Simulated scan of single mutants.
Amino acid sequence: MTVRFGNHRLAFYVFTFLLSATVLGISANFAKLFLPNILHDFTIFSLVVPSLTIFLFLLSIQWAQPRTEVVQYLVLGILWLTMGAWSTDIIGHVQCDSLSGQMSTKNGEISQQSYCRQMKVVQAFSWAIFCFFVIAMIILVSLASRAQQFGRYEIWEEPIRELPWFGEMPGYYNTHAGGMHSGMPVGMPQYPMSAGGYPAGYNGFQGMPIQTPGHSIVIQPGMNGQPPTVTQVPMSA
């Protein structure tokens, strides 16, 4: 697991979660004041978007794949873009300090300045969350593409915590790319490539090991990142 990516992802989740919770709280206040007859379309939509964001974040914070995460960012980004555009259409470029008087609610009245300021918060946070999702999606696609270049061709289907941060190798803990050679961790013996495309140097052989007549080749995976062990054992009669 790459810790730096996990930490950055967690920070993004927490920050977006807090902004979404703030929007949800303001929208809940609007629902108490206006539903079901006043501003019902926007109020309902403003309840759904942050609620869905929080729900999906709670589902995916421990388990996700890059392919599911990028779809999540895309869908939520579109919803927050709609939220920001809709709130801008409602409140426009109104200066809240210039407002005076009251506006009707289902049970009475509310100050126009108070309503305007709350709408400004919804508007600003919606655009901010949309921008965060765009940035997060660009970073996610970039990291997955880099991991594929290092040989993790199935990285889109693997756990998202296997993604490397910039300068790291996929799946290795705090390993800087500058200390890597041929996509293998530091400290692992390096073998030149033979003409046939196989690593040379196992047990003194160049290229693939040559099987001795009457023997079987046994390849055992290495421990703790070490290269595999190739041995030959006599075949039983």
Rank of each mutant, 00 (worst) to 15 (best):
A124I: 13
I90E: 11
Q113K: 15
G108S: 10
L81E: 09
W86N: 00
S114D: 12
E109K: 15
K120P: 03
T105Y: 10
Q112S: 09
C116P: 05
Y115E: 00
I78C: 06
M119K: 04
C96M: 00
I78W: 02
S104D: 06
Q95C: 11
K106I: 08
L79Y: 01
Q113N: 15
S100C: 05
E109L: 11
L79N: 00
S100F: 01
K120C: 04
D89H: 07
S114R: 12
L81K: 11
M103S: 01
I78Q: 01
Y115C: 00
F125L: 15
A124G: 09
H93Q: 14
N107E: 13
Q118H: 01
A85P: 00
Q113I: 15
S100K: 04
G77F: 13
W86Y: 05
I90S: 04
S87Q: 12
Q123V: 07
H93I: 11
C116R: 03
V94A: 08
T105S: 06
F125P: 04
S100D: 07
A85R: 01
L99K: 05
V121R: 05
G108R: 04
S111A: 09
S111L: 10
G101S: 11
L81F: 13
D89S: 10
I90T: 09
E109Y: 12
W127L: 08
D89I: 01
D97L: 12
S126E: 00
R117Y: 01
I78A: 13
K106R: 07
I91M: 08
S98P: 03
G84V: 04
S111T: 12
C96F: 05
S87K: 07
T88K: 08
S100Q: 07
G84R: 02
S111Q: 10
V122S: 06
S104R: 08
R117S: 08
I91A: 02
A124Y: 02
K106Y: 02
S87E: 13
S104I: 05
Q112I: 07
L79I: 07
S114A: 12
W80K: 01
M119L: 15
A128E: 06
Q113L: 14
Q123M: 12
A128G: 03
S114W: 02
H93E: 13
L79V: 09
K120D: 14
G77I: 12
Q112M: 13
W80A: 00
E109D: 11
M119W: 04
D97S: 15
L81Q: 12
M119R: 05
C96I: 04
G101Q: 08
R117P: 01
R117N: 12
E109W: 14
A128V: 13
C116W: 03
G108P: 07
M119S: 10
S126V: 04
L79C: 09
T88V: 07
T105F: 07
D97G: 14
A128H: 06
N107H: 14
E109F: 15
G101T: 11
A128I: 12
W86T: 03
D89L: 06
Q113H: 14
F125G: 01
G108F: 08
A128D: 05
S104C: 03
M83H: 10
E109S: 15
Q118C: 03
S98Y: 00
A128S: 08
A128N: 06
F125V: 06
F125K: 05
A85V: 11
K106W: 04
V121T: 00
Y115L: 06
